[in-house]
Amino acid sequence: MSVEEFLPQEYSESVKNGSFKWQSPSNIALVKYWGKKPKQIPANPSVSFTLDHCKTLTRLDFQKKNSGEDFEFEVFFEGRKKDDFKPKINTFFKRIESYCPFLKDYSFKIYSENTFPHSSGIASSASGMSALALCMMSLEKELNPEMSEGFFNRKASFLARLGSGSACRSIKGEMVVWGEHENIKGSSDLYGIVYPDEVHEIFRNYQDTILLVDKGKKEVSSSVGHDLMHGHPFADVRFKQAETNLTNLKPVFAEGNLEEFIKIVENEALSLHAMMMSSMPYFILMKPNTLKIINKIWDFRRETSLPVCFTLDAGANVHVLYPEKNKNEIFEFIKNELVACCENGQYICDQLGSGAKQLSMEN
């Protein structure tokens, strides 16, 4: 698909007012996207696990207005008005206006809340922007009832990407690819697709225990970090590395080869942070306890041969990944050895999920 295919024709219906409510999950990349081209196009493809418990719930109320040249909306987060959220949403609306030309026809109220603590250090842009994009698509489907489910999901992912790149991987599950890759049929820079190839049973219900090492605001935002890949001395090599790692994951996913899975996933996590540490200006988002956790995981894996590994997002927190069949032994290790490294002993237990879901207004 090209961007032109997301430009709507004249709508067949009119809608005066209403509400929609969606819940959308966060996701954790296995092959990392770091660096982007204009219009939120990724510099390399990525693949992610869709999470199940870490979600944003968003309700969109809309009312037709007489006229207006500006976007009209209010934002509420966990029951409180949040004007400091408005600039990001205004930017999002500007980016998607040509694809959602009804935006200035309505006055909106956006109510949002997370199932995980807002200041927990878990990025909520993926879940938040994808939930909002899905609400907008529900409104567009009211205006164009003939829209197919497949197109609805593709366009929701396309719109979510324009709010936050990784948000396009939160529409569906369990594993999502974003970014064109010659060996993955249907992959696109414009939206995420459900990983289309064979996946071994061992990856079903994979566990992700998120260790909250540092809940403070990141010293360098992801947007700034992405921009620092322009002119980075290792950028081209990094982009090729991501392509190769995604290629190498295909037989790993099909065969359930956890030894190779661990190597690739941990290599990707450390490569992401290596790019941060070697950019100009350089920066470090890991904390001492991040490294302590990593070393404890390596020691435990060496001693027990249990298939536990880590990945990192663009921050200090550690995602501990392991198969459901080894949950009891590995979770005991996490509680006994790793939780002490978390801020206030906080962690979140999650697992693979199936993607976003529309909620009834009674929920």
Rank of each mutant, 00 (worst) to 15 (best):
E4T: 03
S14E: 15
K16Y: 12
F20L: 05
S24L: 09
P25K: 04
N27F: 11
A29F: 03
L30R: 04
K32H: 12
Y33L: 02
W34I: 05
G35Q: 06
T50R: 02
L57Q: 10
Q63G: 00
G68K: 09
E72A: 09
V75R: 00
R80F: 05
K81S: 13
K82T: 05
K86W: 02
F93P: 09
I96P: 11
E97D: 12
S98F: 03
P101S: 08
D105W: 01
Y106W: 08
Y111K: 08
S112G: 13
F116W: 03
S120K: 06
S124Y: 08
M129W: 00
A133V: 07
A133Q: 07
L139A: 01
L139I: 12
L139M: 06
K141A: 09
N144C: 11
M147K: 03
S157L: 04
S157Q: 00
F158Y: 02
L162V: 05
G173W: 10
G179V: 09
G179D: 06
G186D: 07
G192R: 09
I193G: 01
I193L: 08
V199E: 10
V199M: 04
H200T: 01
E201M: 11
Q207M: 15
T209I: 15
K217V: 11
K217F: 00
K218A: 05
K218D: 07
G225L: 13
D227A: 15
D227Y: 10
Q241V: 01
A242H: 05
L249F: 02
K250L: 15
P251Y: 01
V252A: 09
A254C: 05
A254F: 11
L258G: 00
I262D: 13
V265G: 12
A274N: 14
M280H: 03
P281W: 04
Y282T: 10
L285G: 12
K292E: 14
K292A: 15
I293G: 02
I297Y: 02
R302G: 03
R302T: 13
R302A: 13
T304V: 11
P307R: 00
C309V: 04
H319F: 14
V320G: 04
L321M: 14
K325I: 10
K327S: 02
I330G: 05
N344A: 06
Q351S: 14
K357V: 15
Q358G: 00
S360W: 08
M361L: 14
